[in-house]
Design a protein around this nucleic acid. Structure first.
Length: 829
RNA sequence: GCCCGGGUGGCGGAAUCGGUAGACGCAGACGACUUAAAAUCGUCAGGCCCCCGUGCCGUGCCGGUUCGAGUCCGGCCCCGGGCACCA
């Protein structure tokens, strides 16, 4: 407000580094010039850099600061490389915390959310992130979620949406459905009541229709961490196997099972049924033991981790199944480790060759019959299952075959006998998108007593979520709000009831990246601009989203493509998954009381210091250990840089470097400058290791600081070049200070529009190199040689090196290994 | 339980393709400046040893491959992320 307007280029520098006014001025400059408005008509190549948008929880936390600093550094770097960059920001505004806040404080979720957005937007601006704010939106805006409702109806008409029952956590005291997070050790978080499971009708999207494409598409995602691709691959869990049927003795009933190991078929000693399997439910009526298992399966949380860590328990049903090849009778057990959701809810158990089956069989004294053996010897199944492939024995006509041969032979035999067929099975399940919650996008369906579920007509969209509500913790307020649910059937006009469930919030986050291309479009979900900006060139967010969010967004992208709304097969070209921010070795969280409010640090040291520290403290994909004194170190470095520039410019303008006119020391300083440019370009542009880029600039500044005594014209020219390199390299990381320093160094154009520095290869040339001398791989000395010396000279020098010679004395030289420019290793005996 | 990561000085981390372990920074010690302190600048800094040597040991633990392993392979321990209704 004050000094800013009177500032002219080049600006005089204050005695001390004062981040406050420098940052205010730089932000005002970007604002005034619309610096970060992304223009799709630009002739520059486009670059879409997206950071995962935040849930507006109230204030920014360190995880946000880290995420958004990485995104901003990439965006500004790409801009300096000549790209037209789109970097948008918005709000993932629906979700559970708003409902919790409403219960705790009596604030309506909409009001609470919008206030949080206002506060967090100011914090983001204060950190100097270069967003195109004109594209901002929140997912709770009806103009956003209307297109999600519109798409859902299209998918409904296309058959990609269906209704089925599925299991939820039910709190019998609060009479409400609980999220997995709200179930703590099998009990409701508020009521403390033992959680029950309930089957209720819900809406599903057929993501499994896209399972193969989602799996195959991973191969082409070379810009994604292998770790994330592996997690998605495992999540989709494609497995090829055989589905076969066991007849139940004394009845026409058939039991279908899926196995990836038909080669082990002769080792089956029992069948396992999920407690929720219809046969188990039927038997529970007569058997207390089975009833107890079924009852147990109905308590506790629905989360996979809850189910998988239960002690393996089971009960004999008394039923006997007929082995399809041998005709042998095998017992049928109810087993609590068999999942109803996966396959058919029944498994053939081969304890000799499957570890879970082995443990169950050992616990209940069931036979363990090895039929697969290593080529040379016998499988030992006394201490656990033998799960490798091998050669079949005691397997009838298939004995002697390898597992691979037997897979095909047995599958073929089952197929020709009509007892089974080859099948591909996925672990991936269809996506349940219904939530029995208030603060989400309404599902645009009307339930008519005559017509059944009917989609809301496009002309009636959006179905607007009423925002003026009071929550009481007992179910969704929508279900007790006649003004919302009372309606008429769009088809027959009869009185009908609106769906009161809302969408899973992953729905909103599955397509926001595309809407950022055209957020102002009022009459369509997306337009041609999406084709211009997409795919996202670089996506940045937490590793915790490796599977769910990133898989759903990939699925949505393919759906939108098939609807003709988008080109391309994948939404995110490159992905960077950032690590967590820790304090004292643990994740920062309110419950641990180890949070650090980034705002306090910005107020005290400025945004540049906070940004610099988060980039310097760790590589982006690793966890970052918070350190207050480390922040002070970052501040000290910026101040040192400020003083270096101040002292340099105080002496007046410097001439351009004339490489031929430099003395040895000046040449060494200049080599350091260009080595730093080379390293920092690689670190920021290719490796994303911002920490080592910063370290190399610090090193260069240490060198420049020592060279500052050289006040000769050539020395000052080298200094000018070095300081400009430092400012350019740091501009994406500490943009405010660099904005200021760049102008102080005499430039009219703002640094945000400057070009990334280029390496002068000639400055890198060395006349002499140091070689390490090893004897038997141990460092014993060093020799310095002319850079163009060959292997013979290096060998000669190494053998003559006095300390190394001590270790070679009286020994025979077996071999000499020469690594040019690095080392020479003499192997002696 | 299943899937995926990580483990290097007092601390955060570096070592990019198997080639000098500990760059850079923090904390610390000593020195300069100062009446003094802070700030700043400079020097030192993995461990061990009455052999102080460019000696020996050292990258979670055990073993292997190699002229050479923090890096590759096998086994184990510990910590973290995800597990479909937290986002």
């Amino acid at each position: 407000m004050f000094a800013i307007l009177t500032l002219r280029y080049p600006s005089p520098m204050d005695e001390h580094y004062q981040p406050g006014p420098i940052e205010t001025e730089a932000q005002a400059y970007w604002d005034r010039h619309g610096t970060f408005a992304a223009d799709e008509t630009s002739s520059h190549p486009k670059y879409y850099c997206l950071s995962m948008f935040p849930y507006p929880s109230g204030r920014l936390h360190m995880g946000h600061v880290r995420n958004y600093t990485i995104g901003d550094v990439v965006s500004r770097y790409k801009r300096m490389q000549g790209y037209q960059v789109l970097q948008p920001m918005g709000w993932d505004a629906f979700g559970l915390p708003a409902e919790n806040a409403a219960l705790e404080r009596g604030v309506a979720p909409a009001k609470w959310t919008r206030e949080n957005i206002g506060a967090m937007r100011e914090q983001l601006k204060g950190l100097g992130f270069g967003y195109d704010w004109a594209r901002e939106f929140a997912t709770c805006d009806p103009e956003y979620y209307r297109w999600e409702q519109w798409l859902f109806i299209r998918l409904y008409r296309k058959g990609l949406v269906y209704r089925a029952t599925s299991t939820v956590n039910w709190d019998p005291v609060d009479q409400t459905v609980l999220a997995n997070e709200q179930v703590i050790e099998g009990r409701g978080w508020r009521s403390g009541a033992a959680v029950e499971r309930r089957e209720i009708p819900q809406w599903f999207l057929r993501i499994t229709d896209y399972a193969d494409e989602l799996l195959e598409g991973l191969e082409a995602l070379e810009g994604w961490p292998e770790q994330v691709r592996a997690m998605q691959r495992n999540w989709i869990g494609r497995s090829e196997g055989v589905e076969l049927t066991f007849a139940l003795e004394g009845g026409g009933e058939m039991l279908s099972v899926f196995t990836t190991r038909p080669d082990t078929l002769y080792g089956v000693t029992y069948l396992g049924l999920a407690p929720e399997h219809p046969i188990a439910l039927e038997l529970a009526k007569e058997s207390d033991e089975i009833a107890a298992l079924v009852a147990e399966a109905r308590t506790g949380g629905t989360a996979e981790a809850d189910v998988a860590t239960r002690e393996k328990r089971g009960a004999d049903t008394g039923l006997r199944a007929v082995h399809p090849l041998t005709g042998e009778r095998v017992p049928v057990w109810v087993a609590n480790f068999v999942l109803m959701e996966y396959g058919s809810g029944a498994v053939m158990a081969v304890p000799a060759h499957d570890q879970r089956d082995w443990e169950f069989a050992s616990a209940y004294g069931l036979p363990i019959r090895p039929v697969i053996h290593p080529e040379d010897g016998a499988a030992d199944v006394s201490g656990g299952a033998f799960t490798e492939y091998g050669v079949l024995r005691e397997s009838g006509e298939f004995s002697g075959m390898t597992s691979g041969q037997a897979f095909d032979a047995i599958a073929q035999r089952l197929e020709s006998d009509g007892l089974g067929r080859r099948r591909v099975q996925y672990r991936l399940r269809d996506w349940g998108v219904s939530r029995q919650r208030y603060w989400g996008a309404p599902i645009p369906i009307v339930h008519c007593p005559h017509c059944g579920p009917v989609p809301v007509p496009d002309s009636d969209l959006p179905v607007v979520l009423p925002e003026d509500v009071t929550l009481d913790g007992a179910g969704s307020p929508l279900a007790s709000m006649p003004s919302f649910y009372e309606t008429s059937c769009p088809e027959c006009g009869a009185d009908a009831r609106r769906e009161t469930d809302t969408f899973d919030t992953f729905m909103e986050s599955s397509w926001y990246y595309a809407r950022f291309a055209c957020p102002d479009r009022a009459d369509a979900m997306l337009d041609r601009r999406a084709g211009h900006w997409l795919p996202v060139d670089q996506y940045i967010g937490g590793i915790e989203h490796a599977v769910l969010h990133l898989l759903y967004a990939r699925f949505f992208h393919k759906v939108l493509r098939d609807e003709g709304l988008l080109p391309g097969d994948e939404p995110f070209q490159r992905l960077l998954t950032q690590g967590m921010v820790l304090k004292d070795g643990a994740k920062m969280s309110k419950s641990k009381g180890n949070t650090v409010d980034p705002q306090h640090l910005v107020d005290r040291f400025g945004a540049d210091t906070v940004r610099l520290f988060t980039m310097f403290a760790a590589p982006p994909d690793q966890s970052l250990e918070w350190s207050d004194s480390g922040v002070e170190g970052a501040y000290r470095f910026l101040r040192r840089l400020y003083l270096l520039v101040r002292d340099h410019v105080a002496a007046g303008a410097a001439a351009a470097v004339e490489p031929g006119a430099l003395n040895d020391e000046q040449r060494a300083v200049r080599r350091k400058v260009h080595e730093t440019i080379r390293k920092a370009s690689d670190d920021i542009g290719k490796r994303f290791t911002f920490n080592t880029a910063v370290a190399s600039v610090m090193e260069m500044c240490n060198t420049l600081g020592k060279a500052a005594e050289d006040r000769s014209a050539a020395g000052r020219a080298v200094m000018q070049e070095g300081l400009e390199a430092a400012v350019l390299i740091l501009a994406p990381i500490a943009p405010h200070l660099c904005h200021h320093l760049w102008s102080a160094l005499g430039h009219q154009e703002p640094v945000v529009d400057a070009a990334w520095p280029e390496v002068d290869e000639r400055a890198l040339v060395r006349e002499r190199v140091e070689l390490v001398v090893q004897v038997n791989g141990k460092l014993r000395g060093r020799v310095t040689l002319a850079a163009d010396a060959g292997e013979d000279r290096a060998r000669e020098a190494a053998l003559a090196e006095p300390n190394a010679a001590r270790f070679m004395e009286g020994k025979e030289i077996k071999k000499v290994i020469y690594v040019p420019g690095k080392l020479i290793n003499v192997v002696v005996r």
